[in-house]
Amino acid sequence: MSDTIMQIQNLKQYFPVNKKDKDGKSLFVKAVDDVSLDIRQGEVIGLVGESGSGKSTIAYSVVGMYRPTDGKVLFEGKDLNVSKNRALEMKKNIQIVFQDPGSSMNPHQTIKEILELPLKIHKMCADKAERETKIRELLEMVELPVSYMYKTPGAIGGGERQMVAIARALACEPKFLILDEPTSALDVSIQAKIINMLLKIQKEKKLTYLFITHDLSLMRNIATRVAILYLGKIAEIAPAEEFFYKPEHPYTQMLISSIPVVSEEEEALKPQKVESTGEIPSPVNIPSGCSFHLRCPYVMDICRTEDPVIQMSDDSHGVRCHLCE
């Protein structure tokens, strides 16, 4: 078994809302509620969920944009949130690529300036000339022409912009990269190119990816392990192959059976049709018991009162459901 690079332990991330309940207690959005996850060196772990399930919040907590309400994030055995400000070394090792390349880069800067900033901050290069060579290398790595250095983000296409965002994240040679829906704003033909490039870089540099997406069929093709989130909690976690052949949680079955597919063979892979009903409830008042029971076709009495805990059926496959106990 390979080494664990990151441990997320009972992570909770609550945000206060400007509302009070009947007894005058202040309410919270429980965006992430008690999530534990071990990530091994060199794997691509997929986080999947509908909007509002807390995927991005986990990413932002890990990268340090939020301080966790409770719980710990350990990177190579060290707690990331001991002091108020994270050490520079820690920031260097964990980098993030955002969803929308249009708004994550300064439109007034050139690509060169954008790529230069992380190199300066983390003191990667001794002088200006060395920085320029490094920027050239970065652009070559993401298969962009070197002449793009003097363009602004507005002058290049969406796919190319996302490549620059990836180059920026890789500039300071991180060990761990968070990809927050890097291709969901792009077309499939461009998506294919970016994904292939990301996988190539991952192999070359032995990186670990935390890949967030809502596209399950994309996940099938790139992830080694997949975790499904529902209302801030992990519903099911399994190695990618097992996840798609033997989905156990009713929510996973519902998700997989609602994917539109392009061939008969894929149609056959879908689990017996679980009709999708209802919508994800507001995270401010999470239903009692199992948070999924309002939409679950197999709901039992126990689901309405008791929240199931995650059960590991074998070493790697975990399901949080009363049905599978």
């Binding site: 033909s189 461009i190 294919a192 069929s217 099938r220 093709n221 990618a240 798609f244 597919v261």
Partner: peptide, 14 residues
């Protein structure tokens, strides 16, 4: 070819 398949097998070049 660029559509990711549910059956796995990687993604084509686009």
């Amino acid at each position: 070819e660029a559509v990711p398949r549910l059956g796995g097998g990687g993604i084509q070049s686009g």
